[in-house]
Design a protein around this nucleic acid. Structure first.
Lengths: 174, 174
DNA sequence: ACGATATGAATGAATG
DNA sequence: CATTCATTCATATCGT
């Protein structure tokens, strides 16, 4: 899910293993577990939300991991698990017509921010992450209710560098 | 001093607690995490120890949270996390003076990991079972997403508290 | 006030 | 795909 309200801030794209020091002091990396970088997360989310990737095949996983590898060490299983978890965790609920309107009104024209439904336990996770608009829009699989929000498409056929750039549609607490 | 009983004297569901954190989240919503009240804790423990509840299902969680809601605001995820944490934390032992592994990590040591059957991608992960790669070919290539997609923002793991929209995220390191 | 501890929350990894 | 385990971060609260 993505209500990253305080989640361990992933370090910068330190094209390296999970060393990085998560904002603290950590020596042993022991490859305990994959610590995705911000870029990796971003790309994964884009694949998930924008492209609608849910259960990539082996080949797809390879490609994705290969692409993400530029931003940090990653393995196929990481990609696999990520999608699995993401899907299981905040499944977009396909028909999320609800669109919980977080916030009172679109003071800034955000519109309604939809939050993930989560699995069984219900309850919307704390809306509003660190940033305002954030929170993780989980939808856009089929229901596109043309929101006023404009989105920019990222190039896919591009080579490495310019993966995409999360468009900042929200005017951060203007 | 019980390590697991450091319960703070929570008060009744009145005020004082986190005001409307979820209601109005400005920049810093300080995501006041759920602070269980004494009654809630008591009930949860009863459910855990007496009734043996360990991993309530969605329905169970709903019921529990509904019941606990009378003693203070609570959400399904709180119940879920509570049981998860409680089980993970105080699963076996009971009272122990401290001895908490604070700042410690890597106390374990995976000797020989039981490598499972390798899968398509490259790592040990569930093999078979899914119909992936079978007549699928649902690669991202054929996925049409460029039709006026309404996009959702992907949160950013940064402290984007300041204005940022004008920042081109392109790797134009110059 | 600061540091230690307890614990809520998040998520990667694993299993059924 | 659903559920659970494991690990880690973040923070409220208490002790000093």
């Amino acid at each position: 899910m993505e209500p990253q309200q305080q989640q361990q801030h992933q370090q910068q794209p330190d094209e390296d293993n999970n060393g990085g020091a998560k904002g603290s002091f950590l020596c042993r990396q022991t490859s305990t577990r994959w610590t995705p970088t911000a870029d990796q997360i971003r790309i994964l989310k884009e694949l998930y939300y924008i492209k609608g990737v849910r259960s990539p095949n082996g080949a797809e996983i390879q490609q994705i991991s290969a692409r993400l590898r530029k931003y940090g060490k990653i393995e196929g299983k990481n990609v696999f698990y990520w999608f699995q978890n993401h899907k299981a965790r905040f499944s977009s609920s396909s028909a999320n017509t609800g669109a919980v309107t977080v916030g009172q009104r679109d003071i800034h024209g955000y519109g309604s921010v939809t939050m993930q439904e989560k699995t069984f336990w219900d309850c919307p996770v704390p809306a509003g992450g660190s940033n305002i608009g954030a929170g993780g829009g989980s939808m856009m699989s089929n229901t596109n209710y043309g929101s006023g929000i404009s989105c920019t498409v990222f190039d896919q056929d591009q080579e490495a560098d310019a993966e995409i750039e999360t468009l900042p549609l929200f005017p951060m607490h203007g």
